[in-house]
Structures are given as C-alpha cells and as structure tokens.
Nucleic acid binder design. Structure first.
Length: 569
DNA sequence: GCCGTTTTCGGCCCGACTGTTTTCAGTCG
C-alpha cells in the first residue's frame, strides 16, 4: 500500500458528531440502497434500527458511552459497529460503498409515490436509467412501452409523479399542533355529515407523536360509498389519490395525505388498534399472538376461523392477556411487558387538571377575553388560574397589563375561580421597574444568560419555569441546568406544543430528574385549539401520572411553600 | 441484519389497492 494514511478528520481533529436524526437518515439510506440492490431482509432491519434511533430520548453518543447500543431495539452486532464507526469517524464505510454501487438518482426514483425498489431496479438494469431525468427521457422515447407490466396508466402515473417531484419537494412530517385543527375539522365533518356510527383518528396522531406524516381516519358505516362521497367533497380536499371499496386516500389543500377506512363494527377495535400502531408495537403484538396460537390483524384476534375479539380495543388487548395500552405508550418501549404484568402507569388525563399556571394577556386583550378565560375555567371546574400581569418580554423590555384588565380580573375573581397574579422574569436580578411587584408567584423564563445566572434571581416564590423549548436533537445538555434550577426552586416546568415548550423528550428528562410538569390548558382557545390535547399527549408519552403534574390532582395551595398575603396592605 | 417462553438457525405481518394481468407483482401502510 502506498500513500500516507488518511487522517480521520481535518487538521483540528474534530469530527462533527451526527445527530440522532442524521444517523437515522443514514441508516434509512442504507436500507433504500440495499432495497435497490435486491436484498431481502436487511433493508427492514436497517429501517427498524433507524426508527429506534429516531425515537431515542438522548444522544447516540451517550448511549455508546455507556456501552448500551445493543439495548436499542433492532441494533445488533453489525449495526452497533456501524454506529460506533459513525460516531468516531463521521461516516459509515459500508454506506459509502453502497453509494458507490448505486447511482444516486435511483434513490430519488425509489422515493417517487407509486414506485419502489423493484421498479427502480428494473429501470436501472433493463434500461440503464440512473435518475429521474433519464427516466423522463426514457418515457418520452417510448422505451417503457415495450416493458412487461407497464401499461399506459402506469406510465402516466410515473410521468405525473416525476412532474410533481420536480415542482415540490416530498412533503415531510409536520408538527402535530399544525395538523390538529384540520384533523378535528375532518373528524367532525364525518361525524356530522356522513352516515357513520363510530369515527376516530388513528396513526401517529392518536399516539400523540410530535410530528405527523399523514392522517389515518377510521369509521364504521353501512354506506362506505356515501362516506367517501362526503369526505372527498369537503372543502379541504384537493385531490383523490385512490378509492376502493373500503379505503380512500386524499390529499388536502396543504399537501397533507389523509387515509380514510371504513370497517365493520365487529372489527372497529381491531382496526383502530392496527392503524394506531406503532409498527414496532404491532409487530410485537403479532409475535405475542402467534406464540399463543392466535392470529391478529385489522379484523380481529382469531383462533383458527373463530374471532375472539375485534369490536373494541380493550377486547383485542384482553384476548392477548394484556391490559389496554394507552396509544401514547405504543412504541415498543416495554409497554407490552408492563401491560402483561398489570404494571402500566395510570397516566394523567384531561379530567385530572384543576388549574392553569400560565395565562397571558397583552395590550390587545379586552375585558371580554378575561371573561372568556373565566367562563372556560368555570366550565372545566378549575379552582384557580394564573394570569401574567407583568414581566420581561422576549426583547428584554418590561411590560404590564393595562389597568382595565386588572379591574376585570378583580371583578372576575369574585365569581371564582381564584385568579393568581403572576410576574414573569428571566434569571438574574429583578428589573428595577418590576421591583414593586408582589405577585402570588413568579414564573422564570430561561434566557441566553444561562442557568448559572438563575442563582442571582432573588429567593422569590418561583412556581413555574416556562418558555423553554426542547429544541432539535438531544434536549439534555441545554435543558438539564434549567431543570436543576426548577428542582432547586420547587418549580414545575411547562410542556406542550410549540418551540417554547418542552416536548415528550423534554418531559421525560424532567420526570427523570423529579421535576413536576405543568400543562398549558388552552383556556379560551376553542375546540380546535391544540394546546391542551397536545400537552396531555406529550405528558402521557413521557409516562407522567397525575402526581407528576403540578396543575393536576388537586390545586396547589395558595402561596405555595410559605403562604403569604396575596397583596400588600 | 436481527432475534428467540418454538434460541445460535431459520424465520422475518399481511391485507388493500392498482394496473396489469388470465392469476399476479409491486407498492403502501
């Protein structure tokens, strides 16, 4: 061998460490490449590992540091080795070799809707096509016409898939809170306007995942054709992708794909279970069923021809000897074992909530807004709500709500629920303009000053750390100091949708450190407001029980630790 | 390539839909 050894990285010696998402993407690419090469089971193995890596709550590097890579579902000898290589060198030689074997354009072809690895491989082998542009040329030259299995419709389909991919990128997963309003509208449109008996949303939406790729709607009906007619006639629907006897797929105006399935009432629970997933959860259930001489599919649980269960999810799980598993836990992270032992946690639910710790009014708010918050809170029988009356804005300036709002808060409080006045500050000394404030409690808003600056915050009664997001990648390093601050102050940390709240990974980290969670309740938000349902979903995905949620399970005593008069004088 | 109350080999979910077929292959979820 000649030549100097290639340095592992640039002169600085630093290898940029891939995020979990980047690692997962690399393994998915390996899977696609192997698919094109005609491998049989390896692709699924790499995809399973990619899914597991994606759902980790901490960095791969940390898991590797503890020598626990093998504990990740779907990671064995070979993939463990490749993860280590990736972490140390920034690349995977095996993947690089596959990339050299397969023309890059074929990956784009595989990802076109309606096309897959088999077809891409045939284009490559039979026609020498190595990418979308060449495929387009081959179609226009009529070279596909002679190929077996390619009629005019198929060729048309490929042609429009090529055109669509050229104009718009492949739609990615979207934040669940962005999908929530339209999902609720579609569900209600079906329940109110179509001949359906039961209707639910399944899929990752029902599991409360942070992001949603598409929507899965499930209904029972004696007239599927009518249901499909109503559904595809809705204003939100842009095009019908496919329509059969039991299933219709449409694309909404925003590009979101929605699958609607009609099933028999006898199979509704089984179908709901099946289409809620996750895939890995279902695979494990199926294995469990097989071990017991049973078969489970979207129509039910069967022993031979006999259907043992199917009408409700409870029946389906019970027939396998399992307690019903909340959708938010169905990720094959040990929940099936727990369900078989009756050891599932009793997760926090909407009826457990008894207060709100963090409501904002601003200069544009009116007394009517205050009244709306209060009437919502009364309807939900909340014992107290907390309104931010002053604080430090994100630009560093201080603010106070207008006097007329103070007056309406004063009036509203007489009719209940109790209204706590709170002030929101960053770490460090309290700004001079807020020094006179004597709120019922304080909210700490983490800023760029860093957690160590929190020590300079006077020993006021901080009951909530809010406006802190999980961010991308491993939330641990950035969050941990703030969670320590919350713990030392006896404060809760706010979770929920949006970039300024913790997602389920952040919630899990908080739980592991013993920091209570606070859920925003979306008071005054209306039926399509995702705030509360998504916050609950994140809390439940993190395994939170009622005792771990600050605004659930009874109301925090007024004044917290060391009660004090509400207002001076 | 992973995995195991059918363990160290031999399996690996399965049904709907589409387009092309005359009994099926490929894709998708």
């Amino acid at each position: 061998m000649s030549g100097p050894p290639t340095p592992k990285a640039g002169g600085a010696g630093a290898v940029s460490v891939p995020t979990n998402a980047e690692a997962a993407a690399l393994f998915r690419e390996v899977a696609d490449l192997l698919d094109i090469l005609g491998e049989k089971f390896k692709p699924e193995a790499y995809r399973r590992a990619a899914r597991s890596i994606e759902s980790l709550t901490e960095d791969l590097g940390k898991v590797a540091g503890r020598h626990e890579l093998r504990s990740i579902p779907g990671v064995g000898d070979a993939i463990e080795e490749k993860i280590r290589e990736l972490l140390e060198t920034g690349h995977i030689a095996y993947r690089d070799r596959l990339v050299r074997e397969v023309p890059p354009g074929l990956l784009e072809i595989v990802r076109l809707p309606g096309l897959g690895p088999k077809t891409a491989r045939r284009f490559w082998v039979d026609l020498g096509v190595e990418g979308p542009a060449e495929l387009r040329a081959a179609i226009e030259a009529g070279r596909l016409d002679a190929m077996k299995g390619f009629g005019p419709k198929k060729i048309d389909q490929i042609r429009s898939a090529l055109a669509a991919s050229a104009t718009s990128g492949v739609p990615d997963r979207r934040p669940i809170e962005a999908v929530y309003p339209v999902a609720i509208r579609l569900l209600h449109a079906l329940r109110d306007g179509a001949p359906v008996d039961q209707a639910e949303i399944a899929g990752s939406f029902r599991r409360g995942r942070e992001t949603v790729g598409d929507l899965d709607l499930l209904v029972t009906s004696g007239a599927p054709e009518r249901v499909f007619d109503v559904f595809s006639g809705l204003a939100e629907v842009r095009e019908i992708r496919l329509r059969g006897g039991t299933k219709e797929t449409v694309i909404l105006a925003g590009g979101l794909q929605v699958d609607l399935r009609v099933v028999e009432p006898e199979a509704f629970g089984a179908a709901l279970q099946y289409f809620t997933g996750s895939k890995d959860h279902n695979v494990r259930l199926r294995t469990l069923a097989r071990d017991r001489g049973l078969k489970i599919n979207e129509y039910g649980v069967f022993r031979g021809e006999e259907r043992l269960a199917g009408r409700t999810e409870e029946d389906v799980y019970a027939s396998l000897g399992l307690a019903w598993i909340p959708p938010e836990l169905r990720e094959d992270q040990g929940e099936i074992d727990d369900a078989s032992k009756g050891a599932l946690p009793r997760l926090v639910g909407p009826k457990d909530l008894g207060s709100d710790l963090h409501l904002h009014l601003d200069a544009a708010s009116s007394p009517a807004d205050v009244e709306r918050l209060l009437s919502d809170a009364r309807a939900r029988r909340y014992a107290s709500i907390a309104v931010v009356v002053a604080g430090v804005a994100s630009d560093g300036s201080t603010f106070r709500i207008p006097a007329d709002l103070h007056a309406s808060i004063e009036r509203g409080a007489r009719g209940g629920p109790r209204i706590d006045r709170v002030v929101e500050v960053g770490p460090g000394p309290i700004p001079a303009t807020l020094e006179g404030e004597r709120p019922d409690f304080w909210i700490l808003r983490p800023t760029g000053k860093g957690a160590e600056a929190a020590a300079a915050l006077p020993k006021v009664d901080v009951r909530l750390v809010a406006h802190v997001g999980s961010g991308d990648g491993d939330p641990g390093d950035r969050l941990r100091p703030w969670l320590e601050v919350a713990r030392s102050r006896g404060a809760a940390v706010e979770i929920g949708p949006g970039p300024e709240r913790l997602d389920s990974r952040g919630a899990r980290l908080a739980r592991s450190l013993g920091v209570p969670l606070a859920l925003p309740t979306g008071l005054g938000g209306g039926p399509e407001d995702p705030t509360l349902p998504i916050a609950l979903a994140f809390a439940r995905r993190a395994g939170a029980t009622v005792n771990e949620v600050a605004n659930a399970g009874g109301v925090p005593p007024k004044g917290g630790r060391g009660a004090r008069p509400r207002r001076p004088g």
